[in-house]
Design a protein around this nucleic acid. Sequence first.
DNA 1: CGCGACGTTGATTTGCCTCAACGATTGTGG
DNA 2: CCACAATCGTTGAGGCAAATCAACGTCGCG
Lengths: 200, 200
Amino acid sequence: MIPDDPLFEPLIRNVRELVAIDDAELTRFLEAFRTVELGKKEILLFKGDTSHHMRFVSQGCLRSYFIDSAGHEFTIQFGISGWWVNDLYSYLTQTPAKHFIQAVVPSSVLQIHRDRLEALFGQVPAVERFFRIKIQNAYVALQDRTLHAMSQPLEERYLEFRRKYRDIEQQVPQYMIASYLGATPEHLSAVRKNINYDRS
Amino acid sequence: MIPDDPLFEPLIRNVRELVAIDDAELTRFLEAFRTVELGKKEILLFKGDTSHHMRFVSQGCLRSYFIDSAGHEFTIQFGISGWWVNDLYSYLTQTPAKHFIQAVVPSSVLQIHRDRLEALFGQVPAVERFFRIKIQNAYVALQDRTLHAMSQPLEERYLEFRRKYRDIEQQVPQYMIASYLGATPEHLSAVRKNINYDRS
DNA sequence: CGCGACGTTGATTTGCCTCAACGATTGTGG
DNA sequence: CCACAATCGTTGAGGCAAATCAACGTCGCG
């Protein structure tokens, strides 16, 4: 009954490690998803479009980013297998997105339409619970990142990023990491040089 | 049946403007709250304590902040009437808080114990829904703030703060606003001076 | 009144950005 | 399969925004 497509495995694990849900309910949930395949650098959501889906990264790596008035890119979030990625503001308010969502490498995404999900919230409490807890955790993580960004110099933030996301660091170019950390590629490059000198 | 204590009014409004909930359920929810009165500068949650309550500001103004290794204060959040304030990480994981929560001016807080709230989540779906939506909105707002902090100069951030939170600006000292904006009091002072010159 | 908390000012230092240029690697079309 | 272009990381010079440090005025409160 539960779909045995291997793309669904990370999602099943993601749900079951957080909430108790029986097979029938889980199946209803999974059946509401559609698969999207993306090539390297392909864009899944454009600024100005409205986000109608919650999106789960099954394979590969995505990022969301925005571009300020001076043309600078800021990476908001990376997402690898097991992460949810979205422009939540656009999704929640059904207004045009301020961010882009892009595949950094070839990726497989599972997405569920907002109408289906809202209906499921009323029908399967475990699904609503799942998203409540997910968003709580995301909030805490974001708060942590915000505080680090304000209080730590770039070197600390970079080392922290490496510790926490070694698997992300390997698949994304450095200028994206710089833009995630709120720095220029040149500055990050200089910091990396320093770190290597310190080692020897 | 619904408590008519005026302190509850902001909370009742807060819930009813977001979810449909009948009087009996709302009453159950409200009865789980206790009132806490705080004097100016009194601390409600100390760093190192574990947060066992969700807290709602009924009157006055609170803030949460943390102190880094160099002794600098960073204000994470202000909360006036109608806002929820907590160290969510401590609350969710039941680990020692990394932040303080403090009354900026004399304040009245309504708080519900975690055990009561978790029980209500299972019994009254509207309560779980309420918190899911609240935390979604908080996440979006925090993301917005994080992006502004990274991409805008202090002057922009200060003007934005003023526009958005004029009612907060009036009850908190300037050095706390500076610490919220990620700047020193001296720098904010200089920026304010500039703004005034521009006006004339 | 006198002390402490708060905001301001100015001099100096510093972390980070900007701009320009240059290898190295990747990928692509002829 | 090679040649050329584009992408990415690095380097260094110069500049600017913001932090630091120290000092001072003012207000409110015990």
